[in-house]
Design a protein around this nucleic acid. Structure first.
Lengths: 254, 254
DNA sequence: CGTTTTATTGAATGACGTCAATCACTGTGG
DNA sequence: CCACAGTGATTGACGTCATTCAATAAAACG
């Protein structure tokens, strides 16, 4: 299986053929293109769909009144944006395209139809939402307790691991690497640092040999070393197939 | 209605009598006492219940390997700790009692039984989880983008508003006030500041006349002024009864 | 090719942390 | 009743990490 959503949900449980078919119906739903840099949805809007990232990267963000911006999450291909968002009247944050972006817009009816007869799929989606909440908490830990280089190193580790789970990382003799289309200015808005300090910190990590980052490609020669230097413990990503006791009989891995 | 859980869910939708009865069955479930300062559940444990705070205050926290601690959320009476936590194999953070604490331990079976025939109640609980996620994001905004005094002021505003929605705040001629059993050391772990700096910042807020804080009681003479000084926009708390179109016929307010 | 975005560098400043000591308050045992 | 320890709040001096401002270099883009 190559679909990022299926790869991701497969970290929780082996889906049956009909689960997978239902998940793919979400995938195909009314896709929308968003240009890099512009907003897909905006704070204050009434949510009309559950969004699924089909291609490209997006971010959730919020502005403070005086213009300061904080990016509170990254959305990668296969990521689903708030299963229960349609309960709310207004969005409390915006979502912007980081790169050129493809979004599936899933209506409540489409969601109900896809999950109605597939409790295993619904559980996988709920698990995914829990993991997303854990990531949010971990970003809080970073902002509150990690130093600049730990924050940035942690962002690299987490993003690399997320890319790996959706089959978008490659491993070579010099470690793993993945796409990383995040400018230093955006990294600043994520980590709560200034762009200048991000720049200096990235350079320091490079000089220590912990990462290579050029041309929107992130390479990590020794992931364990970077994780350790960044105080990153991957437990919160819950990558160990916690729902395996619910595996479908016909759930295969290929 | 006086029950904090019902008051809180009532911010979303008017519950029917049978919704309320079902919610109260969660409330009564096998209550557990935890002494102030000790852990209710610990990172790495297998979750066995959904926890509901019946009385007292708790906090979610995580330690980094070198001992730094971050508190990533406060749990007040009526708060429910992760509707879907039982999907996970391991907890990724701990929960400690801030004050002497009463916890209802709700099993999956009890949860299913309570929500099975009450879709309105289930929606209210899901709405609550969304609001909780929004609070988590807002704490990230604080840590990344707000100054020390804005962070602390924001914590005061949010906590006061949460206490107000559960009927635990009182209003007088000199503004509103509520219990606030949080030591400055704990405020430091919440805001990512040092305890010393929290102390100085609280004093500054006092001298500006924005808050009074003594003997575990927080008083806010002018909430609008404090909110404005802290760049606090209450939108993310979603306090405006967003599910009112789903109100039960027999849902009364008393 | 110019134009814009992104990355990089230096110097000065400032917000916040650390260390260390003191003070107030509480509860405890003698 | 008082000595004592323990917790939480407070203060001062000093150090440091990160910000800001400003300028430049290097890429990316049309």
């Amino acid at each position: 299986m190559q679909n990022p959503l299926l790869l991701r949900l497969g970290r929780y449980v082996r889906l049956s053929a009909s689960d997978r078919a239902a998940a793919l119906r979400l995938w195909g739903q009314r896709p929308l293109r968003v240009r890099a840099g512009s907003d897909a949805v905006r704070e204050g809007d009434a949510p009309r769909h559950v969004l699924v990232v089909v291609g490209g990267w997006a971010c959730r963000y919020r502005h403070l009144e005086d213009g300061r911006r904080h990016v509170m999450g990254l959305l990668l291909p296969g990521d689903l944006c708030d299963l229960d968002v349609l309960l709310m009247h207004k969005l409390d944050h915006s979502v912007a395209a980081v790169t050129s972006l493809g979004l599936a817009q899933v209506s409540q009816a489409a969601l109900d139809e896809a999950t109605g007869g597939q409790p295993r799929l619904l559980r996988a989606l709920r698990w995914d939402a829990q993991v997303r909440a854990a990531m949010q908490r971990e970003w809080s830990v970073s902002l509150a307790s990690r130093t600049a280089s730990e924050r940035i190193g942690h962002l690299f580790c987490e993003t690399y691991l997320r890319m790996e789970t959706i089959g978008r990382a490659s491993k070579g003799p010099r470690g793993g690497s993945c796409e990383f289309p995040i400018t230093q200015a955006l990294m600043a808005d994520i980590t709560g640092l200034s762009a200048v300090h991000v720049n200096r910190t990235v350079q320091a990590l490079r000089e220590e040999g912990l990462v290579r980052l050029h041309d929107r490609v992130l390479a990590i020669p020794d992931l364990a070393a970077l994780m350790s230097a960044s105080l990153c413990d991957a437990g919160y990503l819950h990558l160990d197939r916690e729902g395996r006791h619910l595996d479908a009989e016909d759930g295969t891995d290929e």
